[in-house]
Design a protein around this nucleic acid. Sequence first.
DNA 1: AGAAATTTTGACCAGTTGGAAAAATGTTAG
DNA 2: CTAACATTTTTCCAACTGGTCAAAATTTCT
Lengths: 236, 236
Amino acid sequence: MAPRKVKAADQKRSDGLPGGRMPRSRPQTRIQREKQDIILEAALEVFSVHGFRGATIDQIAEVAGMSKPNLLYYFPKKEEIHRRLISTLLDTWLAPLREMDEDGDPFAEIRSYIRRKLEMARDFPRESRLFANEMLRGAEHVIDMIEIDLKNLVDEKARVMQVWMDQGKLARTDPYHLIFSIWATTQHYADFDVQVRAVLGKDRNGEGRFDDAARYLEQLFMHGLTPRQRQGTKTA
Amino acid sequence: MAPRKVKAADQKRSDGLPGGRMPRSRPQTRIQREKQDIILEAALEVFSVHGFRGATIDQIAEVAGMSKPNLLYYFPKKEEIHRRLISTLLDTWLAPLREMDEDGDPFAEIRSYIRRKLEMARDFPRESRLFANEMLRGAEHVIDMIEIDLKNLVDEKARVMQVWMDQGKLARTDPYHLIFSIWATTQHYADFDVQVRAVLGKDRNGEGRFDDAARYLEQLFMHGLTPRQRQGTKTA
DNA sequence: AGAAATTTTGACCAGTTGGAAAAATGTTAG
DNA sequence: CTAACATTTTTCCAACTGGTCAAAATTTCT
């Protein structure tokens, strides 16, 4: 192997901020915000389909309608785009769960949580897929957020549900797995969209499938979570 | 731009079989089968995490413990490895649904279907992720199989469930979405494993989480699908 | 053993990728 | 207008990518 020459004076800034020759004086130009938004939008499009490694800067630049170096002027690192996307996403993503209100009616709360999640799957499928992609490859870039913010939020809501169960308003189950199942069933319609469409066939393929899903899930969870007096779980 | 010279006599075979200098006389050598298995195993490892575009041949070769040219001797195209993996997978993946028996007890059938799917998520998480990856990016490589084999199978089982519902043995719902929800909730434990672990925390992280999941899902679906006389869905 | 076939390796290639440098072109405040 | 700054384009590069090829090493068959 031939030895490689490395310029010793080759130093770069690696702070999170737009590096290179980007200005730091004034906080943000109008044009900066605009272009960054365009880039993030394009990146979402590409990352959500190909994942981080599969996506290329050229591709994103093309979708964003600008040259690669121009794009790199705003986000000097590919990773930076991805990180921005993800951290913005996580907030939006958890909003519905945050809104679940301890003082509300358990069934109404859960039902509207399911609805909202399903609406998100319908209206922001790219975000859902970006998230799924990230999870699939081990969540390298968000593991901290998941382990802290997400966990705390779920812990909190699990406690709320526990209270509901103790009050006999909700069937006794594992609140964590209950939350998982809501995530899974709703996000499925975004992440596995192709499969859902293929299986439903051309005729049932309009946006109506989300209404059907909403009806079905509502029934499943409402019935599934109704408290019962006797749970004769004698199997076989 | 400099003109590129192209050798006109540069012909390659592009049939599905191992190309290059591979023999065609005898069907398969022992060593061929062995190495191909090793490669497929390594490829599963890599593809399931990074997706098709994100995975590199070098990476797969390294995991497989052989040189890249050596690997390419067995699978002359990257795509070929992927295809083999996927088509093998789909069969295994659908097996549990195929076993759902019209003449069995509806609840027993559905329960054991859920169990089996959950076991697969536990025992073959890489396969599940490979599949999820494929779906996320639009199922390019399997769209036909999905649209035909998978759809047919689901159509058939949906009819079975419809019969059960007509007989009053199962609550009336959309059988398609019922199947979707089983897929979603079970595969979630493979595809979103990181998230599940993170949320459950270190203490609940053993394999026990699958038992908890099984219990929870059983309750959810069994209760959720029990037929009811009156469905007085008057809320608020 | 020895020929033939199979398997493995090392050197190599053209195209792509993330990114750097710098020059060229706006834009704006004084 | 012009200096100072912001934005964009052009050119370029080293590392990596999927893949080739001929030669060498090994296995298999007679």
